[in-house]
Computed example of a mutant assay.
Amino acid sequence: MTEFKRIPPAHAHSLLEEGAVLVDVRDQQTFAANHIPGAQHLDNLSIADFIAKADLDKPLIVVCYHGNSSQSAAAYLVGQGFSDVYSMDGGFELWRNTYPDETAQSATE
C-alpha cells in the first residue's frame, strides 16, 4: 500500500502549479473565511462524492489548520485508493505566513 508523504508549503506550491488537487479539511466556516485558492473543502458529508469523482492517480494535497488532521485525512484517502497523496506540514497557517498574497475567501452564499 502507498503511504502519504509530508511536504512543506513550498513543495505543495510546486505541485499545485503542476496541476495537483488540493483539499482542505478544516471546518466550513473557517474555510469560507480564508483558504488556498483552488482548494476544495472536504468534510464527512462531501468526501464520498469527492472520492467517487476523483482521479485516483492525480497528485492530491491535504491541508488542515496546522498539519495534524491532514495526516489522518491523507492516510484515509490512501486507503480509499489514491496513489499520490501529500499532507502539508504546518497547514493553512504556515501557507498563509509563507504566501500571504495567495489566499482567498469564499463568496457568501
Rank of each mutant, 00 (worst) to 15 (best):
Ala54Gly: 08
Glu93Ala: 12
Ala10Ser: 13
Asp89Arg: 04
Lys5Trp: 02
Thr30His: 08
Ala107Leu: 09
Ser72Leu: 07
Gln28Asn: 00
Leu56Thr: 12
Phe82Trp: 07
His41Gly: 07
Leu42Cys: 05
Val63Cys: 03
Leu56Trp: 00
Met1Gln: 11
Met1Ser: 14
Ala107Val: 10
Asp84Phe: 05
Ile47Met: 12
Arg26Ser: 09
Lys58Ile: 05
Thr30Met: 10
Asn68Trp: 01
Lys53Gly: 11
Arg96Asn: 10
Pro100Asp: 09
Phe31Gly: 06
Gly19Trp: 05
Gly38Thr: 07
Arg96Phe: 08
Ile47Cys: 06
Val23Pro: 03
Ala104Ser: 14
Asn34Gln: 15
Ala74Ser: 12
Asn44Ala: 14
Ala32Ser: 11
Trp95Arg: 00
Cys64Leu: 07
Trp95Ile: 01
His66Asn: 11
Asn44Lys: 13
Leu15Thr: 08
Ala74Glu: 01
Pro9Met: 08
Ile7Glu: 02
Gln105Glu: 14
Ala73Trp: 04
Ser46Asp: 02
His35Leu: 09
Val78Arg: 02
Gln105Lys: 15
Leu15Gln: 12
Ser46Ile: 06
Leu45Ser: 13
Thr108Ser: 15
Ser70Cys: 13
Asp27His: 05
Gln80Ser: 08
His41Tyr: 09
Ala75Gln: 13
Val25Trp: 01
Ser46Met: 04
Tyr99Phe: 15
Glu17Phe: 07
Gly91Ser: 05
Leu56His: 15
Asp84Trp: 07
Leu22Cys: 10
Pro59Arg: 11
Asp24Ala: 11
Leu45Val: 02
Ala52Cys: 00
Arg26Leu: 13
Ile47Phe: 09
Val21Asn: 03
Ala54Arg: 09
Asn97Glu: 15
Gly81Thr: 08
Gly81Asn: 08
His66Pro: 06
Ser106Glu: 13
Val21His: 00
Thr30Cys: 07
Asp101Phe: 07
Thr2Ile: 09
Gln28Glu: 12
Ser72Glu: 01
Gln80Glu: 13
Ala39Cys: 12
Val62Tyr: 03
Trp95Asn: 01
Ser106Phe: 02
Pro9Gly: 07
Ala10Asp: 14
Phe4Cys: 02
Asp27Ile: 07
Gln80Ala: 12
Ile47Thr: 10
Ser83Thr: 15
Arg26Phe: 12
Val78Pro: 02
Leu15Ala: 11
Arg96Trp: 04
Glu102His: 11
Asp43Ala: 08
Asp84Thr: 14
Phe50Lys: 08
Val63Gln: 02
Asn97Met: 10
Asn97Gly: 10
Arg6His: 02
Gly91His: 01
Asn44Glu: 14
Asp57Thr: 15
Val85Ala: 03
Lys58Phe: 04
Gly81Tyr: 08
Ala33Tyr: 09
Val63Tyr: 01
Ile61Thr: 01
Phe82Tyr: 06
Ala48Glu: 14
Pro37His: 07
Ala33Asp: 13
Ala12Gly: 11
Ala48Arg: 13
Tyr65Pro: 03
Gly79Leu: 06
Phe92Ile: 00
Leu45Lys: 12
Asn97Ser: 15
